[in-house]
Simulated scan of single mutants.
Amino acid sequence: MSQDGRRAVSVIGFIGSVFSPWYRWSGRRDPENHVCLNVVTYGPGGKFCMTDRGRNALRQSAHSFTVGPSSMHWTGTQLDIHVDEVAAPPQIGRLRGRITLRPCALSGVELPLTPDGAHVWRPFAPVSRIEVDLGPGGQWQGHGYFDANFGTRALEADFDYWTWGRFPTPDGALCLYDATRRDGSTLAQAVQFDRTGAAEPAPLLPKARLRRSLWAVRRETRADAGHRPKQSLAMLDAPFYTRAAVTTRIDGHESLGVHEALDLRRFRSPLLMPMLAMRVPRRARWTHRD
């Protein structure tokens, strides 16, 4: 997110593209045949890019992940992202450029999201700096975040609903994870990270409601008692998912961070898949030329 809170970017690399209708229609038997680099810019002229590609588009090593013409490379001290993607309607066009994420430190935290460890959250660098150069009007600097999620089952098989948030604090960043599993059990976790990468459980602040999204997805986060968080920048709105910049208050300090809410009950509906296919094209035959 930019320092002034007016622009933001998200980049997600998928092997087994979780939200791809093509992967779901395939039976999810071959994750390496459904890969993508999902790049979304927020703010003036924001673009959404999420092309589902086949196995010939994938190249990976211990430090690099390449999907089609785009790639991510870990140098040992920073994550270099090269973007060359085509945006979906309504902002049709190419999105090209570079993004550099520099962690203040790396964290060793790993949090199972289910008791059997079928889903795991790995926050590599919750406190980072980011530099973005994605062409005219897309050049800015700000604070960033770097994590990963791993799973051996579909999200909708184990969860009904979850929310996640990452909010800067005076000493680092607070990450919030709340989820309702399909068996009725819940996850409620708050982790405070400092600038050295050290982490410790944080007290769970009271839940606080946000206004529903444009698609009426229920939203909630955590905040000081009596405080009402507010959306500061709309990012991504889908029938089952919403991402936004949210201003909240944590231990007396105002914080502008990123919040997500995911309704897996809606995502389980097969009626959503044709809608998603309009935003997530499939290029199964793309291959590297060298």
Results as ranks from 00 to 15, higher is better:
152 T>H: 09
152 T>D: 09
152 T>L: 10
152 T>A: 04
152 T>V: 08
153 R>H: 11
153 R>F: 08
153 R>K: 08
153 R>W: 07
154 A>S: 12
154 A>D: 14
155 L>K: 07
155 L>N: 12
155 L>F: 12
155 L>V: 04
156 E>M: 07
156 E>I: 00
156 E>W: 08
156 E>S: 04
157 A>C: 11
158 D>L: 15
159 F>T: 02
159 F>G: 08
159 F>Y: 13
160 D>S: 15
160 D>C: 12
160 D>T: 13
161 Y>M: 12
162 W>F: 14
162 W>K: 10
162 W>L: 15
163 T>E: 15
163 T>N: 05
163 T>P: 15
163 T>L: 05
163 T>V: 14
164 W>V: 02
164 W>C: 01
166 R>V: 01
166 R>S: 04
167 F>T: 01
167 F>V: 02
168 P>C: 00
168 P>L: 00
168 P>K: 00
168 P>I: 01
168 P>Q: 00
169 T>R: 00
169 T>V: 00
171 D>I: 05
171 D>Q: 06
171 D>S: 08
171 D>T: 12
172 G>E: 03
172 G>Y: 00
173 A>N: 05
173 A>C: 07
173 A>I: 00
174 L>A: 02
174 L>N: 04
174 L>T: 07
175 C>W: 00
176 L>N: 04
176 L>Q: 05
176 L>V: 13
176 L>C: 05
177 Y>W: 14
177 Y>G: 03
177 Y>M: 14
178 D>F: 13
178 D>A: 11
179 A>K: 10
179 A>Q: 02
180 T>R: 09
180 T>V: 09
181 R>P: 12
181 R>L: 13
181 R>H: 10
181 R>Y: 06
181 R>T: 01
182 R>M: 05
182 R>L: 13
182 R>S: 13
183 D>V: 04
183 D>S: 12
184 G>P: 07
184 G>K: 11
185 S>P: 12
185 S>I: 14
185 S>C: 12
186 T>P: 02
187 L>A: 03
187 L>W: 02
188 A>I: 10
188 A>S: 15
188 A>M: 14
188 A>R: 15
188 A>C: 14
189 Q>E: 15
189 Q>K: 14
189 Q>N: 04
190 A>I: 10
190 A>E: 13
190 A>G: 07
192 Q>D: 12
192 Q>E: 14
192 Q>M: 13
193 F>I: 01
194 D>I: 04
194 D>C: 00
194 D>S: 01
195 R>V: 06
195 R>K: 06
196 T>H: 11
197 G>Y: 12
197 G>N: 03
197 G>V: 10
197 G>D: 10
198 A>P: 01
198 A>I: 07
199 A>Y: 01
199 A>C: 08
200 E>D: 07
200 E>G: 05
200 E>C: 13
201 P>D: 14
201 P>T: 09
201 P>A: 14
201 P>C: 09
201 P>M: 08
